[in-house]
Each structure stands twice: as C-alpha cells, then as structure tokens.
Amino acid sequence: MDILVCVKQVPDTTEIKIDPVTNTLVRDGVPSIVNPFDGYAVEAAARIKDNAPDTRIVVLSMGPPQAEAALRECLAIAADKAYLVTDRKFGGSDTLATSYILSKAIAKVEELEGKKFDAIFCGKQAIDGDTAQVGPEMAEHLDYPQVTYALEAAVEGEDLHVTRETEDGKEIMGVKMPCLVTFTKPSYDPRFPTIKRKMKARKAEITHLTTAELTNIDLTHVGLKGSPTRVKRTFVPPRKEAGVVIKEETGEASAQKLYELLSKAHVI
C-alpha cells in the first residue's frame, strides 16, 4: 500500500489578531503549523500503516522553502519521504491552479518513486483559506473517485472503506483505489512524534520540485495568470455591536432581567 498525503503549512489562525488601529490582520509573530486537518490525514495514513507495516507514506506540500518545517513534522509523526513543490512562478495560484500543479507534481513523484499511489489523503480544508476545494479539484484532475469529510479509512482488498461525517450522522462508503480522500476531525487525538523519529526527521532529505523538474506543467495554467478567480479586496468583518451584558446578584435575578428585555424587544 502506498499513500500520498498532501499537507499545507498555515498560520495558526487561532492566534491571529486584528490590529485595532489599522483594522487589518496581524500576522507577524503568528506561528506556522501543519494545517490541523492535514494532520488528521497523516494520522489516518499512519493507522493504515499500523495494521500493514509495509505501507509507505509519502508527504507532499507546496509553498516557500520554509514549508519544509511542516514536512519535517509529518516525517517525525509517520511519513517515510517528503517532497516540496516550490517555485516563485506558482505564487498567486488560486485553488484550481494549485490543484493542477499538485496533480502534476503527484505524477512526477510517482515517476521518482517508481510506483503509483493507491490513495491520496488530504485535509478537508486548510484553516487559512477555508475553501475545501483543492482536494476534490485534484481528484478531478487525476480522474480519481473521491470521498470527503472522512473520519477514518480502512483497506478492504482493492477498496477503501471510509467512514464519513454527514449532516445527519455517519456513513461508510466503499471506494475503489486509486482514490482521493479528504479528512475532517476524528474523535481521537492524532499521535505525537517520538524523539527518535524527530531526530531522524531533522536530518531527512526533502526533495524540492521546481518548474525545472516539473516539465509536465503548462505554465499558462499556474500563478495569478492561470487562475480563474481574483481577489478584488479583503476587509476585516465589522464587529457586531457589543450586546447587553446582564450580571445581576443572582442567577435568578439575571434570568428575570433577561426575560424582561426579551419580552420588551418582542423576541418572546
């Protein structure tokens, strides 16, 4: 079994603050992390490897050279090999262009590895862009079946059995490999790396793939020029006006006050 996990390095959006003077996003000093949903995808691959130790897990990322840190973290947790797609020409790519680049990079990695991946795992979305589009778009480029919102995946012969979250609960989907699966937050916590793996990951060689290696890429389909969507502008959402805070002596008095306010406003 060969699994490729796609990961993205993202700013920890829970640490992002708004500058009250300029009303813009303060990104300085915000730590970079492995996108948490991609971490769940790594964990899902690791769980398959727990049951089938001859499984090979390869991680792939696209980003600036410092995204190597995210790949090393995945190597420390469970991955066997890491590749980084990095080239200034890829900057400004929207989800369609990004998924195109990654699908071509996957073909290149398969060539270098000398075999095809049975499954591509991704997080359901990155916590910075929040689009949840790159996974399914890659699946379309590759013409693979997809399962999104997965909680866990198990190998059953030629198929993957994927437990996925739905609006009403859960369901188990069977899907033929090769396929692409995007993962959401499972009910268990992902594992931590061991010290030994961390040491090894620090020294691991990460193969960079640039436009020099990725000769299969049509450069008219990448970057800002190759992207169908444009960001017209961004803004910090207006803060909702502070609500009424009720803090009477007792819970009972607060409840009475709330009831008065709600009935006066004809809410109840």
């Binding site: 803090k247 819970g251 409840a255």
Partner: peptide, 26 residues
C-alpha cells in the same frame, strides 16, 4: 459573548431553570 445580543454571565444550573420559571409564570 462577542456575537450575543444578550449575555448572562452565570451558572447554567441557576439561570436556565429561573428563565424557564419566568416564562411558565407569564
């Protein structure tokens, strides 16, 4: 509280039954 129009800082076990009682009383 940042999205709330009305916020009560208090214990659920005290505030919620008291609110229910107010509504039932009305």
């Amino acid at each position: 509280f940042s999205v709330a129009d009305y916020g009560i800082v208090g214990k659920i076990s005290e505030v919620v039954p008291a609110l229910t009682a107010e509504i039932n009383k009305a």
